[in-house]
C-alpha cells in the first residue's frame, strides 16, 4: 500500500469518513429543516425540569451577581457600586490570608485523603479476616454528621484535660495547644479534614481498582515485574481517570467546606484557619456586608471552575491515551 494512500485514509478517518468512503454528511450542504414535532415533544417534556433548573440555580446566581456589584445588606439591596466590592476584596490582606489557608487546606485535604484512601483500598483488596467489618468502620468518619465528628475532635484536643494534650504532656511535649496555637490549629483542621474525607477517597479508589483486570498483573509478573513496577506502571495508569475525578470532587469539597472549619475553630485563632468560604460567611452574615461577601464567593467559584477545567482536561487526556 502506498504511503500516500495510508496517509489519505488516516486523514479520512480523522474527518470521520468511514471505510465505505461516505463519511459524515458535509455540514455546509446539510439541508435546512425546521424543528420536528418530535423535538417539540421532547422539549415540552424537558421544560418543567429546565424551568426548575433555571429558577433554582440560574436566578440565584444572577441575583447574587447583582448583589456583588451593590453595597447593600441582607435586607436593603443598596446602590450600584460597580466592581468596587471586587477591588476592595482583592486588596484586603484578610482575603489573601484566607486564600493562602484555603490552598493549604485544599492541597492537604485532597492529597492527604487520597493517599490514605488509596493505601486502604489497596490493603482491603487483599482478603483479610473481617474485611467487611473493617470497611464499615473505615467509612464511619464519612458517614457520621460533621457536627458530631467536630464535637468529638473538640473533645479530643481542645482543653489541657483532653486526651491528646494529656498524651502529648505525658510524652514530654509540654502543654500542646492544638487549637489555640495558630499553626497547630491549621494543622489540626487539615488533619481533621483528611480524617473526614479519606473514606470517600477509599471508596473511589476501591471501585477503580476493582475495574483493573487481574490478568494484567499476572502477565506482568510472568514478565518479571516487581510489585512496585506493577503498581506504578499498571495500577496507577489504569486508575488515573478515577483519580482525577476524585481530585476534582475533593477539591470542590475542600474549597467549599464550611462546617469542618467553623465548628472546630470558628476560623480562629486570630483568623489563622479562616478559609475563603468562612470569610464569605462572616462577611455576609456577621458583618452584614452582602456585596463583598458575595464577591468573595464569586471569586472562589471562578477559581474552582478554572481548577476543575484544568483537571478535567487531564481526564480527557487520559481517555485519549
Amino acid at each position: 500500500m502506498a504511503t500516500s494512500t495510508v496517509t489519505n485514509r488516516i486523514e479520512k478517518a480523522r474527518k470521520g469518513v468511514g471505510v465505505s468512503g461516505q463519511g459524515a454528511p458535509d455540514q455546509g450542504r446539510r439541508k435546512k429543516k425546521g424543528i420536528s414535532a418530535r423535538a417539540w415533544t421532547l422539549l415540552a417534556f424537558a421544560f418543567p425540569s429546565l424551568f426548575l433548573l433555571v429558577l433554582l440555580n440560574l436566578y440565584p446566581v444572577i441575583y447574587a451577581g447583582i448583589q456583588s456589584v451593590r453595597d447593600g445588606d441582607l435586607i436593603d439591596p443598596g446602590n450600584f457600586v460597580g466592581l468596587k466590592n471586587y477591588t476592595d476584596v482583592l486588596t484586603q490582606p484578610s482575603f489573601w490570608a484566607a486564600t493562602r489557608f484555603t490552598i493549604i487546606f485544599t492541597i492537604v485535604g485532597v492529597f492527604g485523603s487520597w493517599l490514605i484512601g488509596l493505601v486502604l483500598a489497596l490493603l482491603l483488596r487483599t482478603k483479610v479476616p473481617a474485611g467487611g467489618l473493617f470497611k464499615v468502620l473505615l467509612l464511619l468518619p464519612w458517614v457520621v454528621p460533621v457536627v458530631v465528628s467536630a464535637t468529638s475532635w473538640n473533645w479530643l484536643v481542645a482543653t489541657p484535660q483532653s486526651p491528646l494534650p494529656m498524651l502529648a504532656n505525658a510524652l514530654g511535649l509540654g502543654n500542646v495547644l492544638f487549637l489555640a496555637d495558630p499553626v497547630l490549629a491549621q494543622v489540626t483542621v487539615c488533619v481533621f479534614k483528611v480524617w473526614v474525607s479519606f473514606p470517600f477517597m477509599m471508596m473511589m479508589m476501591a471501585s477503580a481498582l476493582a475495574a483493573v483486570d487481574v490478568n494484567v498483573y499476572e502477565a506482568a509478573k510472568m514478565d518479571g515485574a516487581t510489585n512496585w513496577q506493577s503498581f506504578s506502571h499498571i495500577t496507577m495508569p489504569m486508575i488515573s481517570r478515577s483519580t482525577y475525578i476524585s481530585w476534582i470532587l475533593m477539591t470542590i469539597f475542600c474549597v467549599n467546606d464550611f462546617p469542618t472549619i467553623f465548628l472546630l475553630t470558628g476560623g480562629g485563632p486570630v483568623d489563622a484557619t479562616t478559609s475563603l468560604v468562612v470569610l464569605s460567611y462572616r462577611t455576609v452574615f456577621q458583618n452584614f456586608q452582602t456585596g463583598p461577601g458575595v464577591a468573595i464567593a464569586f471569586v472562589m467559584t471562578l477559581v474552582l471552575v478554572i481548577v476543575s477545567v484544568v483537571l478535567y482536561r487531564q481526564i480527557r487526556k487520559v481517555n485519549i491515551e
Binding site: 448583589q67 436593603d76 467549599n256 464550611f258 464569605s280 460567611y281 455576609v284 468573595i296 464567593a297 472562589m300
Partner: peptide
C-alpha cells in the same frame, strides 16, 4: 457553601 452564600444573597429586598 459558596452556593449557600450566593443563595443567601437572593432574599428579595426592598419594599
Amino acid at each position: 457553601m459558596a452556593a449557600a452564600t450566593l443563595l443567601a444573597a437572593c432574599s428579595p429586598s426592598g419594599g
